[in-house]
Nucleic acid binder design. Structure first.
Ligand SMILES: [Zn+2]
Ligand SMILES: [Zn+2]
Ligand SMILES: [Zn+2]
Ligand SMILES: [Zn+2]
Lengths: 163, 163
DNA sequence: GAATGCGATGTTATAATATTGCGTTCATTG
DNA sequence: CAATGAACGCAATATTATAACATCGCATTC
């Protein structure tokens, strides 16, 4: 059933990027929001890989391309992208990653490999349900869930077995 | 069964503090670790309330008490306290809170009220199990879970109903 | 076409959080 | 008491994020 998670295997990553950009154009269009060149470029940079990028990584990349970029440039683009559900912030890393389920309601849930740093975003309803239930039992009205799991991805587990 | 969560109701908070300090002494003693005056004072400051404190809040408090405190002073104490399971870092707030289950194996899980900022730490096995299961299904070896839920606590929900 | 409104951007400065490096002090122990 | 290693003091610096204010470009309206 469940597809082998992409970030940890060879895959045609160009397809990931193209999909993400196409989704972004559609979503922004539907929301009458402007996916300006800077915003699109930041999104594309984030999707260079499945590894989260820090704001200053993005800033450096923009600067190299000759853009007049200061921190607010990047943070504003990131705010926009987050608001439209196109990227997620990984609180435990202070870094940003493209959303793998843009356009779908979901409670993101991240598996972060401490070795290769790839991040897999899951949308596990049974986890979200368990969380909601536990919160409700305490009378707590949950609004926003941060769920980040650090560990070793399948590929890096095999690597460390070689020792 | 489940006790009404403490932070959101009036409670004898002195008992929370005393318990936390007693636990800390016992745990450090058992581990042959030194709960030095600075470390103990930082722990006590963190337990002043159930609201997370930032490192620089702690730093300010120490400075007011006449301690020669620089950032490393606080961060070192916090590292020590985290390593011995006496405090948790709340990644989504860059702040620290006392551990409510010191000495017991647990995967902390935090309900953070965005209004009063109190934090309740739960240890919900069914949530931890759901998380582990989801990770295992992806072949991921989970090591460390960050689970932080922002929302409104029972008391602050009643407050906002008054409108 | 000028005036206006408004979202997006540019620019500078600063705030807030966290770490590195190095020398000194102090507790423990043999 | 000397040796050891953990803990601490101190200065500098790194990293992440925001505040404040000026400007630009474009659409609407007069
Ligand atoms: Zn990909
Ligand atoms: Zn990996
Ligand atoms: Zn209490
Ligand atoms: Zn509250």
């Amino acid at each position: 059933m469940s597809q082998t998670p992409l970030p940890y295997r060879a895959h045609n990553h160009r397809a990931c990027v193209d999909q993400a950009l196409a989704d972004a154009h559609r979503i922004c269009n539907d929301a009458h929001a402007r996916l300006t060149p800077t915003r699109e470029r930041v999104l594309e940079l984030i999707w260079q890989s499945h590894k989260p990028l820090g704001a200053y990584d993005l800033l450096g990349a923009l600067a190299q391309e000759g853009q007049n970029a200061a921190p607010p440039t990047v943070y504003r683009a990131l705010d926009f992208l987050q608001q439209h559900g196109l990227v997620h912030r990984i609180a435990s890393l202070n870094a940003f990653v493209g959303c793998a389920h843009a356009g779908h309601r979901h409670t993101g849930f991240f598996l972060i490999c401490r070795a290769c740093r790839n991040v897999l975003e899951l949308s596990a309803p049974q986890v979200a349900a368990a969380v909601d239930k536990a919160a409700q039992e305490e009378g707590f009205a949950a609004e926003d869930t941060t769920l980040e799991i650090a560990g070793l991805c399948p590929a890096c587990q095999r690597e460390s077995d070689h020792d």
